[in-house]
């Protein structure tokens, strides 16, 4: 295990009586993609902004690169890159001018063309920011977050509001960052995003971290059943009945049953064979993060606080 680059201890943020962040502790290791997963209003952005030094905590301790965020703002912001939530930039600067502007603020002599190509904006370099689509704007934001060659990149909801195609483009860029060895701190309320990108996921709800681990660890730890979906002829449901499993008939003539473990899966197969029941396909799948999340928090991801 590599060393931790961000360390958060007992972080609390109060807004009046509201405990926006309620005693959170976690660590982020160098080089990993760390995802904060939770619905809107869970306290993700507040926590991230405290780590980014632009918001003050009520209590608790936050260290980046071993430095206290309260005391070392100047040093810290030179070494991190930030894509804020709902990033926006100057309407009347072109893509290239925007990247150059932020590079100048960091006194960085980075290769602007390289950055623009990295986020696939080569064709749009001379377009005004205001004329770009949402996905392209987000990619400008990511390029801008990289002008100082940061060791940690913070991406706050980088794909919210993007269509699936644009979302996958952003994911490609994030995977590229990981390959370059950068630490990525991602906040998202998209399950799939965390599952696809993250090495470590912290599930956050109502200001608290409920569970932490890799996506597969979380699923192993919290899922209690395996979905067995069998599509085929008559009599499939009788197998589930005979074994006392929960089952449900789905559209298209398939039956989903909930197996507890591999033993039960084998038993299902045996019974199918004994009774000579035919089938077109069998799909065996563990629960996904969405189900784990629902189970842990009792709330949906995209619901909750709204925007």
């Amino acid at each position: 295990m590599s060393e931790s680059v961000i360390s958060v201890e007992n972080l609390v943020k109060l807004y009046g009586d509201l405990r926006a962040v309620d005693d959170i502790s976690f660590e982020v290791r160098t080089g990993e993609v760390f995802a904060f997963l939770g619905p809107n209003g869970a306290g993700k952005t507040t926590t991230v902004e405290i780590i980014e030094t632009i918001r003050n905590a009520t209590s608790g301790k936050v260290l980046i690169f071993g430095m206290d965020v309260r005391k070392n703002r100047t040093e810290i912001i030179k070494r991190i890159g930030v894509l804020p939530q709902e990033f926006s930039s100057f309407d009347r600067l072109t893509v290239e001018e925007t990247v150059r502007y932020f590079a100048a603020l960091f006194e960085s002599d980075c290769d602007v063309q390289h950055l623009i190509n990295l986020v696939n904006l080569g064709k749009h370099r001379n377009q005004l920011y205001t004329n770009l689509s949402g996905g392209l704007k987000q990619r400008v934001g990511i390029a801008v977050a990289l002008v100082n060659d940061p060791e940690i990149v913070f991406l706050d909801e980088p794909t919210t509001g993007l269509d699936p195609r644009a979302r996958h483009d952003v994911w490609d860029v994030i995977n590229g960052l990981k390959k370059e060895g950068k630490t990525v701190f991602l906040t998202t309320h998209y399950m799939e995003e965390a599952e696809v990108l993250a090495d470590t996921v912290a599930i956050i709800s109502r200001g608290r971290i409920i569970s932490t681990g890799s996506p597969s660890e979380l699923i192993d730890k919290h899922s209690t059943s395996i979905h067995v979906t069998i599509k085929g002829g008559m009599g499939i449901s009788s197998v589930a009945e005979a074994m006392g499993l929960q089952w449900e008939a789905k559209n298209g003539g398939s039956v989903v049953m909930e197996a507890r473990d591999n033993e039960q899966i084998l038993e299902i197969m045996m019974r199918l064979k004994e009774k000579n029941i035919g089938y077109d396909s069998i799909d065996i799948r563990k629960a996904n993060l969405e189900e784990v999340f629902l189970k842990l928090t009792g709330e949906g991801l995209s619901g909750g606080g709204g925007h």
Binding site: T74, K78, P84, E86, E107
Partner: peptide, 13 residues
């Protein structure tokens, strides 16, 4: 309104 100030706060300016 556009959040540009928030972005500027994360730069050395």
């Amino acid at each position: 309104q556009k959040g540009i100030l928030r972005k500027l706060a994360t730069t050395p300016i």
